[in-house]
Design a protein around this nucleic acid. Structure first.
Lengths: 231, 231, 231, 231
DNA sequence: AATGAATGAGGGTTCATTCAT
DNA sequence: TATGAATGAACCCTCATTCAT
């Protein structure tokens, strides 16, 4: 067995490295191309041939890395979505900002950017294709949604614990903090041409209103009510 | 005159009536079947043959009433979605309840029912298929969305005018009132199996929080803040 | 029985006559409509529904008179083509004009008119559909072609017998007299838009040339050669 | 350098060659199969699946090379028809034979062979399908018909210029020289089973008659009249 | 590892034909 | 006799997937 490994190493030492690099890079390139295609056309309307063409790769190559179209789709979701969510989640868990400041600052910025980004298109895909891909949905729920919910709940609880927020049912439904994201994404995808929506402000308004609703009535917060969204 | 109607004539008359009834009934039956299929499988995965089978009708019949699959899809959206929205919208415009009472009452009930209904599945379809059917999207925007937005804005403005609500940016983004509906619908469709969500309470909480945020701080409103969602 | 007849007559006196007339007329109307459709679109591309619509008749009615589309097509050919050919054929057999005069006169006029007429389109159909309808082809051969050939041969033989024509192989191939008709018909159908063809003159030239070729060199024909088509 | 070509490389090189050969060969095979099917059944009645089967190829392959059934049909016409016509046309334009000798020799042989060949079936197709394929008709007119007409006219004019022929209207209607070809083709396709037609002799007779009609009456032409078709 | 020719199941759509009324 | 709703076989075309090279 040791000899086998040695042989492999020797091969690697020569020119196999290039191949290795390629083998590591190609899948990413294919996933990236697939992302663009899926985002632009939707799952079914995307032809693997087009993905291959966009990745400057032969028609058959994707099948070397992804057994089926569905696998490729899953890979897209995993690779494109997860990292960003992980980042904000970790930040949310480790920040030492006040909860209100975090929501108004990094969190708002994150969802504002998300809505305008290419990644938002994938959300639409998940919505459309989710039911057909239970495994993917499970993965997505486990790695993105549940953690995200927990992180938001932690943020809310911390705010309550520190006297920033009064206790409300929001802690049971942290989804409400992100609800307008979906609305904004879909508006942009479907109705933007008919009626422009300032999604940045929409989200800002939403966060402001929720904060107005949950802010503790007394204490160091000078503006009792309405600061977040009075005019 | 009754006697001039001979038996034959009566039969003939019935024959015609039957035919006419059929001609009016069949499309509805087909649309109903299509609704079920689309809702269950999505647009592309739905085969017209299955729609026909569900409607207990031959493969070719749907094409007698709907020129293409797409037309059938549009008919589904129109017939299934529009009426309900029209009803609540009219109610919203003509009610003499206070805005808060309307939101907490009929409006909340409407969105709660919507989330749990079969019609919610169509929302998913619209999200997924919208970009591929601009005409349908336009129709939907014009007949459902824009009127809905306007009606909600009217409700908010009325509340402000009557001293119930303080002026907030919510009037610019009435979408925020319905935002959690989408979230709830999608949660049920995608994640319910992984984690139960009490959508009724989610929506109630949302409306409560928003009302807390916009309620005018003084005056005849006895509960200054938090009543809607304190605990 | 007298009473029955009386009753019928009374009925006939009212509106039943119309029905009878219709029953005799309807097939003709349908055949006429089918002729237009077939001529315009070809056999396969013609939908019986369109035929019915053109005849202002319900979709199912043609099947009352013609068992299949093919039967209807045959009826069209029979009713539209045969009579005209029969007329010229009888004329050809009974005329007391000289053969040359007949060819230059009535025969030329007949083929000139044929080329420009709507009926020419049916020729195209026969060419295209013939192999698929052996029965029809047989009918057509028997009732039109073979008699036509024989009649022409008779005309040629008569010309030879009377010293008008010298004996040539034309009597074995009377088809040569009509050959340019097909060419003219097809040119008009296919190439007229690209290059105009004066079919009248084409046919006249042809008859003239053939006459020049077969005219007996001496005798009562004053113009030995070239009169038919010299310039 | 020959040694640098390792066995593997040679194999690879062969592999590519084979592929390329295939890529160039398959379309031809498919076109050939399509030709047979179209000729036998006509355009509409030909199913691409049968074409594929005849070419010993899968159902979908023809679509790799020909986007639609129509494209395939066009390819058939182009590949089967054009080359032969081009050949005789060039011959006609460059020959140093007398016009009469050319018509009686190579030209007669060409049309005799044409009538008996499989290609004649395509003529029937063009006649039947032409109106539905204006593009194809235009192509055909431009590449075959118009050039053919011009070449024939050139031949006639040359004959006149050299005193072989007297000037006649034939130069305006060179179509008359080929008119019987269509007749012969169609007779064979439609009526041969009912009555045999010696197409070789038909065509020979036609050319003979036309020559008799246009041959200059005096001068170096030893046979004044009738030689071509006297008996 | 990479290519791209080839496969073949599958689905939308049409339309000749039937039949209840 | 007449209608027109309904049937269902047939066919074009697409595209995920395979495999020889």
């Amino acid at each position: 067995m040791a000899e086998t490994k040695t042989a492999q190493r020797r091969l690697a030492a020569r020119g196999i490295v290039k191949r290795r690099e390629r083998r590591d890079t190609r899948p990413q390139e294919i996933v990236a191309a697939a992302f663009e295609e899926f985002a632009a056309k939707g799952y079914t309307a995307t032809r693997l041939e087009d993905v291959a063409a966009r990745a400057r790769v032969s028609k058959g190559l994707p099948y070397l890395y992804f057994k089926t179209k569905e696998e490729l789709f899953k890979a897209v979701v995993r690779s494109v979505i997860t990292p960003h969510f992980d980042a904000i989640r970790r930040q949310m868990e480790t920040t030492d900002m006040s909860s209100e400041d975090f929501l108004k600052g990094p969190f708002l910025a994150f969802i504002q950017e998300l809505v305008l980004s290419r990644r938002a298109a994938i959300a639409r895909l998940l919505i459309a294709e989710g039911p057909k891909h239970p495994e993917l949905t499970a993965f997505y729920f486990e790695h993105v949604i549940s953690h995200g919910i927990e992180a938001l709940r932690g943020l809310i609880d911390r705010g309550v614990a520190q006297g920033e927020f009064r206790p409300t049912h929001l802690r049971e439904f942290p989804q409400l903090l992100i609800a307008p994201v979906l609305t904004a994404v879909l508006w942009r995808a479907l109705f933007e041409r008919h009626h422009h929506l300032d999604t940045d402000k929409l989200l800002e308004t939403h966060i402001g209103l929720i904060l107005d609703a949950i802010r503790a009535p007394h204490g160091d917060s000078p503006n009792e009510s309405g600061t977040g969204d009075s005019r």
